[in-house]
Design a protein around this nucleic acid. Structure first.
Lengths: 247, 247
DNA sequence: CCCAATTTGTTCGTATGTATC
DNA sequence: TGATACATACGAACAAATTGG
């Protein structure tokens, strides 16, 4: 948090120096620390700030270049290509499209896969169903301006929401899919939030490099009568998304 | 998310295999995946599941042993020592002590340092003050059952809360410190949530090994009249804490 | 008490990745 | 661009402790 003159990195704890530095630079870009110039400081400056060899900084910048976050130009420096953090509000009436609709031009919801399966003990408990009761599981991917912002796994009780996978596939929106299944309104009952290092599978879908962090929300939605209609585990890239809770 | 037979780890991206595997096992323990036996599967089983050498799994388990999460006994197996994830509710009346009071026996709030300083542009904007207006900055550490659960940096407007550092030092509670400064009630206005790799400084204070993830909340508190009284940036270890938002 | 199976602990050697100079 | 030092990862053993017949 504090801006210190000498930025510390720790050696030989299973995370390579170049990756630690890449993560720190990525975080600094997200925080807007280099906004004045739109450039990352010179490699020699970064090297002395972190107390490492310039080669190590170059490895870090190469990794960030691979992610499309910076672009190095010989003789000029390393420019910041992309710096945005979407804000995702969490409230009783949390909706993805309405929530970030004004922060991006183009929003997409893609259905990756859907399955009918028996509810495992955890899902059954969350949705207050009998264990092994039939549920629909949907894997989804959301994009804003063609960049992935979340992957999610949702469970819906059956037979009430039979066909919600097709509805979601065609509309790209959970709200509209619910509507097609005869549910015009729903509210967020609870949201649990934590953070993890993602599975390689999720990282691939979110176009992230393996050091990145995922914010994870486990959300429960209910209809106006209080019957539970959806349990969703959503993974956001922590360096591209911020969650906001307003009282 | 999905339970797959072959657990994937990715090689050569700056994060050592043993650390990836340590993170995965830690997450599985937190999720209660091994609750039946109270033991981690044998090293040979884990090695084949992750598709790595047994030595690599041993490195991962050694790291978890260092964290006090597991304990290996020759001939018996590797037992799970600690499996808790504190739940920290976020609401209009968010209070640390009341929030997790029933989840731990012993709660402590420690003041690490306090300074009077001029508000930087970001702090001034958040607290709706003039830039360079005097504010009190407090660095604090919270422990539950003698294990660190958060470090926080708080800013309070001056001169209204002169002496709040001493009040916090003596009471170990922000709520009580406010009370000693003549503020009997306050409400949470907004909470922003994100996740980062922590500074080595924070990692040391939280007794975490590098590579661990921090959940970060940026919270704004106001008095009943709507005047802003505190801006706080709090860092939680993501594998020991979960945030919950209830509607 | 002994034996076999299981599981962790230890020690070689070898190859590759990381970081400095 | 090498050269060097150390960390990481694998493979093949074997030793030591525990468990259950």
């Amino acid at each position: 948090m504090t801006v210190t003159a000498a930025k510390t990195v720790s050696r030989q704890n299973g995370v390579a120096l170049w990756r630690q530095i890449a993560d720190r630079i990525r975080a600094s870009i997200s925080a807007g620390d280099f906004d004045g110039s739109g450039m990352v400081p010179p490699e020699t400056v970064l090297a002395s700030q972190f107390g490492v060899n310039r080669h190590t900084v170059r490895s870090a910048l190469a990794a960030l270049g691979q992610e499309g976050i910076v672009r190095a130009v010989q003789g000029r420096g390393t420019m910041i290509e992309r710096r945005q953090r979407l804000n995702f509000p969490i409230s009783k009436r949390t909706r993805f499209t309405a929530g970030i609709g004004d922060q991006a031009r183009d929003l997409q919801g893609l259905l990756l896969s859907s399955h009918v399966e028996p509810a495992g003990p955890d899902i059954a408990r969350r949705l207050q169903l009998e264990t092994n009761a039939p549920v629909m599981r949907i894997e989804g991917l959301r994009k804003a301006d063609n960049r992935p912002v979340s992957v999610s796994t949702s469970w819906f009780p059956l037979p009430r929401f039979t066909g919600i996978d097709d509805a979601y596939r065609h509309t790209g929106s959970i709200t509209q899919a619910f509507s097609l299944c005869g549910l015009s309104d729903y509210v967020r009952v609870s949201t649990e939030i934590t953070a993890i290092h993602g599975d390689p599978e999720d990282m691939l879908a979110l176009e992230l490099s393996p050091g990145a962090i995922l914010l994870v929300t486990s959300a429960l939605n209910a209809d106006p009568d209080g019957r539970l209609v959806q349990y969703a585990v959503t993974r956001f890239p922590a360096d591209r998304v911020q969650l906001t809770v307003n009282s």
